[in-house]
């Protein structure tokens, strides 16, 4: 890595990538990150416009400012990629993540889990006499916090979506 890149501070960025939804496009994006040694903290993808076969990939990555510039340019260079936006640097953006959290327990712990879930505005989407599945959404840090609180109360399983993000204000991507 060139010196002017490696000595700068590391930043965390959320990139939104619009792609043609064709076979292999996700593999291309992921392969690019591994081939060039970039980090992926989270990655989500889904089709957002069926008529135009467009999917939106949200990638949370870390790197120096120059590395991020490279990542953006390299993504943009992929033939099926039509747009790359750095939502952290170029916009004010809303970031959300959703998690499903399974907690097992009875008695006091079960009551406490339910009480905490209320504070976090988590919804209960499945229950048995000895377990809950909570659905909780928000900023990734809020999810981290909720999961940490559930750990001593009988945390069994966590499934997270990774971050989705969108810019604030009336303009589209």
């Amino acid at each position: 890595m060139p010196p002017f890149i490696k000595d700068a501070p590391i930043e965390r960025r959320t990139l939104s990538v619009l792609v043609d939804n064709e076979a292999g496009v996700l593999a291309r994006v992921i392969a690019l990150f591994s081939a060039r040694g970039y980090n992926i903290e989270s990655l989500t993808v889904a089709e957002v416009d069926r008529a135009s076969h467009t999917s939106r990939i949200t990638i949370v990555t870390t790197g120096t400012a120059m590395m991020i510039e490279q990542i953006k340019a390299q993504l943009d260079r992929l033939v099926p990629v039509s747009k790359v936006v750095d939502l952290t640097a170029e916009h004010e953006a809303v970031e959300r993540e959703m998690a499903l959290v399974k907690v097992q327990g009875t008695g006091e712990k079960r009551v406490e889990a339910m009480r905490l879930s209320d504070i976090f505005r988590a919804r209960i989407v499945d229950t048995t006499h000895s377990s809950f599945v909570f659905e909780v959404s928000g900023a990734p840090a809020k999810l981290d916090k909720f999961i940490e609180l559930m750990r001593p109360l009988g945390l069994v399983d966590v499934s997270r979506t990774g971050v989705v993000a969108i810019s604030r204000g009336p303009e589209g991507m």
């Binding site: 060139p2 002017f4 120059m66 510039e69 490279q70 340019a73 390299q74 943009d76 260079r77």
Partner: peptide
Amino acid sequence: IDPSSINKNVH
């Protein structure tokens, strides 16, 4: 012609 060549190795 390739934006990824800019600032890749040299500023």
